[in-house]
Amino acid sequence: MQTAITQAQLQAALTARHGAERQEKLSRACIGIAGLGGLGSNIAVQLARLGVGRLVLVDFDRVELSNLNRQHYRLCDIGQPKPTALLQQLQQINPYLRYETHCLRLTPQNIPAIFADCSIICEAFDDAAAKAMLTTMVLQQLPQSVLVACSGMAGNDSANAITTKKRLQRLYLCGDGTTDINIDGSLLAPRVSVCAAHAATMVMRLLLGCTTP
């Protein structure tokens, strides 16, 4: 039987592990995640465990059987919209955070409004054109936001090849930069999760005032 945990108790537990100053910064933050597949779903779970105060979660897709090898979903989630299925899990991790979900396809027209309050946006798309579109929109239309993007996590090469690099003043890139799914043909949970952890770590560092990868 589950014991009811209050918001104060959960916040105290996070503060005990993270430190009061760090937790205060994390709790005040608003982070956007564009795409809730293998990258985005895992990034969201890690940010929720950090106690990031508000998460804006966006994806137009539904959970499929082929997603379960690497994405943070379960058999019981198949057929549900990804934002809905992920929200159920996040609320079980920390029900006291603010979650804003959007079941839609991101476009140049809706990106500025959806992510207007986000200091950091995580690009977690599979499609190269969508990645380029989001990058352009954030850098041109959302000057208050930093973009943490991902590229190169396919295959079974060493996890040590996955790194985080600062590409522009407001752009960080996580991945090995080479192993594209269209070339390698495989996406395996450990490497995808490592890249997601790199992105979540960069978000954490930025929120805590660190600008270097």
Rank of each mutant, 00 (worst) to 15 (best):
M1S: 12
Q2F: 08
T3F: 09
A4C: 00
I5G: 05
Q7D: 10
A8G: 14
Q9Y: 07
Q11P: 00
R22Y: 14
E24H: 15
E24Q: 15
L26F: 15
S27A: 15
A29N: 05
C30F: 13
G32Y: 00
A34M: 08
G35W: 00
G37S: 04
G38V: 03
S41C: 12
N42L: 02
N42M: 03
A44N: 12
V45R: 15
Q46F: 06
Q46H: 11
L47K: 11
L47R: 12
R49V: 07
L50V: 09
L50F: 14
R54W: 07
R54N: 10
L55H: 06
V56Y: 13
V56S: 05
L57F: 05
D59M: 11
L68S: 07
R70F: 01
Q71P: 11
H72N: 08
D77Q: 02
D77E: 07
D77G: 02
Q80I: 03
K82G: 09
P83N: 07
T84F: 06
A85S: 08
L86I: 14
Q89K: 14
Q89M: 10
L90W: 05
L90R: 04
L90Y: 06
N94G: 08
L97H: 09
L97C: 09
L97I: 15
R98M: 03
L104E: 10
T107A: 08
P108Q: 09
P108A: 11
Q109E: 14
N110P: 04
I111Q: 05
I111D: 03
I111A: 02
P112R: 04
P112L: 08
F115S: 05
A116D: 14
A116F: 09
D117R: 13
C118H: 03
I121Y: 06
C122A: 14
C122D: 01
E123A: 05
A124T: 10
A124K: 00
F125N: 00
D126Y: 06
D126K: 07
D127P: 09
A128P: 06
L134I: 12
T136M: 11
M137H: 10
L139P: 02
P143L: 08
L147W: 03
C150H: 07
C150T: 15
C150W: 04
S151P: 04
A154Y: 02
S158M: 11
A159F: 12
A161D: 15
K165Y: 10
R167Q: 15
L168V: 02
R170Q: 12
R170P: 00
L171Q: 06
D176W: 08
T179G: 00
D180M: 05
D180Q: 05
I181H: 00
I183T: 10
S186N: 00
L187P: 00
L188E: 00
L188M: 07
A189R: 05
A189S: 13
P190A: 04
V192L: 04
H198W: 01
H198Q: 13
A200H: 01
T201Q: 13
M202S: 05
M202Y: 00
M204H: 12
L206R: 10
L207V: 04
G209Q: 12
C210T: 13
T211H: 14
